[in-house]
């Protein structure tokens, strides 16, 4: 499943969410707009990188609820069976 995350389709899924929020979401600390940047996720001894909204200055991450409860939850469930 970790591999599946990196397929083209899934990248598009993640990017779609990013574009909706990009521009309106700013990093409180640095006051700059968040951009889609790779972040490392780790779960049950596996890690993988994926683009989500981040502050280019300080690296702050933003994971919206629909991503956490949608695609991420699916991948989590799959990893729990591995």
């Amino acid at each position: 499943m970790a591999k599946k995350l990196n397929t083209k389709n899934n990248k598009e899924d993640f990017a779609k969410i990013d574009e909706n929020d990009a521009g309106t979401i700013v990093c409180t600390k640095c006051n700059v707009s968040m951009e889609p940047i790779d972040v490392t996720f780790k779960y049950l001894k596996r890690s993988f990188r994926h683009k989500v909204l981040r502050c280019s200055k300080c690296g702050q991450v933003y994971v919206p609820e629909d991503l956490a409860k949608g695609r991420m939850a699916e991948v989590e469930a799959a990893l729990e069976e591995k």
Partner: peptide, 21 residues
């Protein structure tokens, strides 16, 4: 306004933009 969880851990980099964090 809202609260939610995910099980994956966000692993932040030790070095960001060339500086230690």
């Amino acid at each position: 306004v809202n609260a939610y969880t995910h099980r994956m851990e966000i692993e932040l980099e030790d070095v960001w933009n060339g500086e230690k964090v």
